[in-house]
Design a protein around this nucleic acid. Sequence first.
RNA 1: CGGGCUAUAGCGCAGUCUGGUAGCGCGUCCGUCUGGGGGGCGGGAGGUCGCAGGUUCAAGUCCUGCUAGCCCGACCA
Length: 373
Amino acid sequence: MLPMRLSRYFLPVLKENPSEAQIVSHRLMLRAGMIKQQAAGIYSWLPMGYRVLKRIEQIVHEEQVRAGHIPMLMPTLQPADLWRESGRYDDYGAEMLRIKDRHERDMLFGPTNEEMITDVFRSHVNSYKDLPHTHEFLVLASTGESEVFYDDRVTALKLGDREIDYDNWDEVAKVCEEFTTLYARTDETHDEGVFNGVPEANRKVGRGIEVGQIFYFGTKYSESMGATVVTKDGGKVPVEMGSHGIGVSRLLGAIIEASHDDKGIIWPEGVTPFKAGIVNLKQGDAAADAACEGLYKALAAKGLECLYDDREERAGAKFATMDLIGLPWRITVGPRGLANGVVELTSRRTGESEEMSPEAAVARIEEIYAAHP
RNA sequence: CGGGCUAUAGCGCAGUCUGGUAGCGCGUCCGUCUGGGGGGCGGGAGGUCGCAGGUUCAAGUCCUGCUAGCCCGACCA
């Protein structure tokens, strides 16, 4: 997508804190014009928020595919009959939205997809030969949004950098070992005694946000819904099942929780909605306007999506908006600097500024993002 | 589903106790001076006070019922 002029964009920022938002990430998303609440727990993603959401989704998707996932899509509107088979139609209470279609058939708004995938599976997979050769499921407790106690080495794991041969039992076992032996608990399951066994240098206590989980179902769904395969010796067994997921929108919130200050969001380069912001300090000044246009086009030519604040606003208002929405880099353009042939490149994270020629600024931005494809 | 809190202009709030002309800040619109961190001055628009009943000469304010939102819990992938 091309760079965007703020005067033509839709960015409804709020100067004051909405009263209903208590959590800092929620507050900042509302203030930065990323989301709009439509009902309890139901939000519209406004342009700025949508860009970040899609960006994170894309990263997660790419990594999942790299790890061997095969994407597919299942309906949210689901027939009640499948849920009756698994027994969950009655287990769920008012939490589940139940509806009837025009033929008076019972339908539901599926909060999850186990019944769907089990039905797909049982329709098309009959033999053990059709199954992938997975050796083990890893089961992690959900972390919740709470205090967490963990061994430092848990977060030091660098999974993306390694190649694993899933047919090699020893290799897989080694990874499992890495996951399952290190201590990592929420306050609900925390054991002070065991935690004290962790080397003191690695002992960490902090706030945790659940952004994903892994569940092991066993044969809960396969048995009740008849998802079986024929084994080597001709027998019939229900398949072992499990699931895992990443909450993309929650991940977005977690990033803000971890990366903000009192002025607003600070986007990491990898997920920022725009690579940089261009602030024209004196809209209508011939030199400033021309310099901004030049930057805007030069960055666009290099495929760098930036946001040009070309509004008729005071400098202070433009700075405040940029700080709030959190673009990691800002190019400030004004008559004063241009008289010396320079613009200012400012890091949102450190607040440090550096004066340089417009060409040098473009080169720097390009260089910075070469490291964040 | 339980417990607590809230509802007044687009947003943030006062006014409710003690009933009597609908207020403030921000935003917005017009004009003007400005122009390197949410600017100054002048002028304007904008509200069936969440909804429905009731008490009263009179209800934003008192009473009853409802609805919506927020927080905590329960539930859950």
